[in-house]
Amino acid sequence: MFEGFATHRIAASGTEIFLCTKGEGEPLLLLHGYPQTHAMWHAIAPALAERFTVVCPDLRGYGDSGKPPSDAAHATYAKRTSAMDMVEVMAALGFGRFMAAGHDRGGRVVHRMCLDHPERVTRAAVLDIVPTRTLFRATDQAIATGYYHWFFLIQPEPLPERLIGADPSFYLRENLARWSGSRDMRWVVPEALAEYERCFSDPATIHATCEDYRAAATVDLAHDEADLDRKIACPLLVLWGEQGLMHRHFDVLATWREKASGPVEGTALPCGHFLAEERPAETLEHLLRFFALH
C-alpha cells in the first residue's frame, strides 16, 4: 500500500514511533485515528508525496509504535504527550516546522500540537472531529448512543480490555461499519483491513487505545480547561462527513472557528467518518489545494 515509502523507527520521549516517509517537498505529517493505523492514508499518501515530504506515523499505543506502560493519571496517552512525540519525530527527520493533518484521534493530537507548539505547525487540517471539550459538554442521549465507545473505553481497566479482547476482529469490523457511510465495508480495501486487524489483535494495543480515551476524559480535559484562551494561530482546514455524527449534531466549522485566531475553512464530504478511505479523491483534492498554499 505504501510502495516506495521508507520505514523508520524513531525514539521519542518514553517510547518509539514507527513511521513511513516519501517525497522531497515541504514536510506534511499525517496522523491517523481510532481504531486504525497509518495505513488509513494508503489511498492518498502516495499522491501527496508527489508534492510534499509525507510522514505517516503510528501514534503511540497504535500499530507498530511503542506501547509504554500506562499511569494512574493517564498522562502517558495524553494528547499533549502524543503531540510531543510528533514534534520530536519531525525534528529527528530534520523538520523544525511542518504542516499537519489528523483524522479522528490524530486530529486531536494536531489540535494540541497547534496549541503547545505553535512555532512548529505552519498549516493544519482536522478531519471529522469537533474539539474534545465541545463534544463532552454537548453530550446528550443521541451523541452518547452514536459515540458509545467514548464512554465504554473510559471505564476502568480491565473491563473494556477484556470485552474487546474476547473478539477483537468483530469489535473492529463492527465499529468500522458503524461509523462509516456504508456498512457493507466496500470502502476499506482488504490490505488495510488486514493491517488494522493485525495490529488491533494485540492486547497491548487494546489497552493503550483505551488509555487514549481515558486520557481524553481526564487529563486532556484538564489541559483544555487550562488553555481556554489559547487559539490555533495557523491556517486551519476542517473536513467532515455529512453522513456522520459530527455533521448531525454540530456546526462543525463554527466549533473550530471558536478555537482559532487564524483563518478557518472547510466543508462536508458525501461520506461517513472515514474520509480518506470512503472519499479519497475528494479528500486528496482538498488537502492538496490547502497545503499547496503554504
Results as ranks from 00 to 15, higher is better:
R80K: 15
Y77N: 05
V87A: 07
E88R: 13
M99D: 09
T81N: 02
V89P: 01
T81K: 00
M99E: 07
A100Q: 09
M86C: 06
V89W: 01
L93W: 12
G94I: 13
M86K: 03
D85P: 05
S82R: 03
H103R: 12
F95K: 03
R105A: 12
V87T: 06
A100C: 13
V87C: 03
L93S: 12
M90G: 07
A78N: 02
M90Y: 08
M90C: 12
F98Y: 15
A101H: 12
M99I: 06
D104R: 08
R80H: 07
Y77A: 04
A100T: 10
Y77W: 10
Y77M: 06
H103D: 10
A92S: 15
G107M: 08
A101F: 12
E88H: 10
A92Y: 08
A101W: 09
Y77R: 06
A78E: 01
D104E: 10
M99N: 13
V87N: 01
E88L: 13
V87L: 13
G96C: 08
G106Q: 10
A91D: 15
A91V: 12
R97K: 14
S82V: 05
T81W: 00
A101V: 15
R80F: 04
A101G: 13
A91L: 15
L93A: 12
Y77H: 09
